[in-house]
């Protein structure tokens, strides 16, 4: 398979320690194609791409979590599709104005992918929105007060945990805990090579093999 991030021997200087410094635009574009390649609808692919872009811009492992998700979807792991954070995000946002102040979700996979949605929700409802879930005895919380601001109770690797239970979405004025970490967006994302390769493998499922006929129809020599 021909991978745009790995097909050449002369590896870029920026590729050190198995990570790549990416522009947010190229990451978003790759994720959009990858999610579609993995079988999601285009609308979900667009939203996942925007979500991973935001997560990576604030230093959270959006690409890693998405890769794990796509692998489980591809493997047909039971229950994966039913507890999908991509689909759940869209269902919640679509019903934004009708949501109660408190929404409970018994279980969900890859909850990190649900977090970017609270930014839009806070904007739409003009109030603070928090999402909290339990994981291995810990409670993880993200809070957005709108205006593209977001705070997290942790940025630890626990965020990569696959399964979460007792998720609670709260729409109410809230004062974030002082210990919470303010998430500041950056203009770049540093993504592991392995995740870029995997995303590209899914994106490649959407790319048609060239034929002589298609070559002849393309741009010619100058």
């Amino acid at each position: 398979m021909d991978l745009p991030f790995s097909r050449h021997d002369s590896r870029p200087l920026l590729d050190v320690c198995g990570v790549m410094d990416c522009s947010l635009g190229e990451l978003e574009s790759l994720v959009r194609q990858a999610v579609r390649g993995a079988g999601y609808h285009w609308g979900h692919a667009e939203e996942s791409a925007a979500a991973v872009r935001w997560l990576e811009s604030v230093g959270l492992p959006g690409a890693a979590v998405l890769c794990a998700r796509l692998q489980r979807v591809a493997a047909g792991v039971p229950g994966t599709r039913q507890s999908c954070p991509i689909v759940t995000s869209s269902l919640i946002l679509d019903k934004a104005i009708r949501l109660h102040a408190r929404v409970e979700i018994p279980r969900l996979e890859d909850p990190l992918l649900l977090v970017p949605m609270i930014m839009d929700l806070a904007e739409l409802r003009e109030t603070s929105v928090s999402i909290a879930w339990s994981c291995n005895g810990n409670v993880i919380t993200f809070t957005s007060t709108g205006k593209h601001e977001c705070r997290a109770s942790t940025t630890d690797t626990i965020l990569c945990t696959t399964h979460a239970t007792q998720l609670t979405l709260t729409l109410a004025p809230a004062r974030p805990c002082e210990r919470d970490i303010h998430l500041s967006p950056h203009n770049r994302a540093v993504v592991a090579d392995q995740h870029l390769r995997l995303l590209d493998q899914y994106a490649a499922l959407l790319r048609a093999p060239a034929t002589e006929e298609s070559r002849l129809r393309g741009a010619g020599d100058g």
Binding site: P4, A204, L206, A208, A210, E213, S214, R217, G218
Partner: peptide, 18 residues
């Protein structure tokens, strides 16, 4: 569509190419 070779958009014939 996007071709594997070019990685850029191309225009194919729905009823003549796969």
């Amino acid at each position: 569509y996007v071709s594997e070779e070019k990685l850029e958009p191309r225009l194919g014939e729905r009823f003549e190419e796969p």
